[in-house]
Amino acid sequence: MRRILLKDASAGMSLAADAINAQQMLLLKKGTALTEKSLQMLKSWGVETVCIAQSETEDIETVSPADNSAAIQEELLSQFADTVENPIMAEICRVAADIVHERTHSA
């Protein structure tokens, strides 16, 4: 299985993993064959990469998925963005980051 950029995917390829967007919405299930229409749909839902079976993508560049716990911290910071200028929001961000960190590590 290889993760490739959506723009490199084409109709006829089948998904080797569920296609989800940044909000973790499940858009297409693993095993679905891509069509022009579904490629357009994935694009409109903000999907940037998809997983395709190895054999179908030999000449296409592989990309790595972005996740894990450093990404969660970064995510939380980008989510709060300029709201942390407020001291109450800064406190909420600080405490929540600790709780989320603990949750992901005990899981």
Partner: peptide, 12 residues
């Protein structure tokens, strides 16, 4: 802040 579910956006 606690990332419980999602309301469809990521902004606070």
């Amino acid at each position: 802040a606690l990332q419980l579910g999602s309301g469809g956006d990521h902004r606070m």
